[in-house]
């Protein structure tokens, strides 16, 4: 494999890896956060080097409700509408009608 072909393969591998990571993070945010938490816990242990522990703490996922979407789903962050506000769920609650 010549150098040019190798460089192409590296760039493409990086682009595809980024795309896979981005899509996974956006489409499965809860799973992403759970996996990230496990990874962080594995690195953030007393026997690990200090720099690794600091890095792990910084990478710790926040406990926010999800992506950057301010309008509701908080799952993929790819939907329309402005971000920022915190979102609280308002599940439907059914109450039986009073007997007539």
């Amino acid at each position: 494999m010549n150098a040019a072909l190798f460089a192409q393969a590296v760039v493409i591998a990086l682009a595809v890896a980024w795309a896979a990571w981005f899509a996974f993070r956006r489409l499965l945010p809860k799973t992403y956060r759970r996996l990230l938490s496990h990874a962080v816990a594995a690195f953030d242990r007393p026997s690990a080097p200090r720099w690794l522990r600091e890095y792990a703490r910084r990478a710790q996922p926040t406990s926010t409700s999800g992506g950057s979407c301010g309008d509701g789903c908080s799952t993929c962050g790819g939907c329309a509408a402005a971000a920022k506000p915190t979102v609280e769920a308002q599940p439907l609650v059914f109450r039986p009608r009073a007997p007539k």
Binding site: A15, V16, W18, A19, A20, F22, A23, R26, L27, C76, G78
Partner: peptide, 9 residues
């Protein structure tokens, strides 16, 4: 964002 990522994939 998401459209670019999925297009690359």
């Amino acid at each position: 964002g998401i459209i670019l990522a999925l297009t690359v994939l």
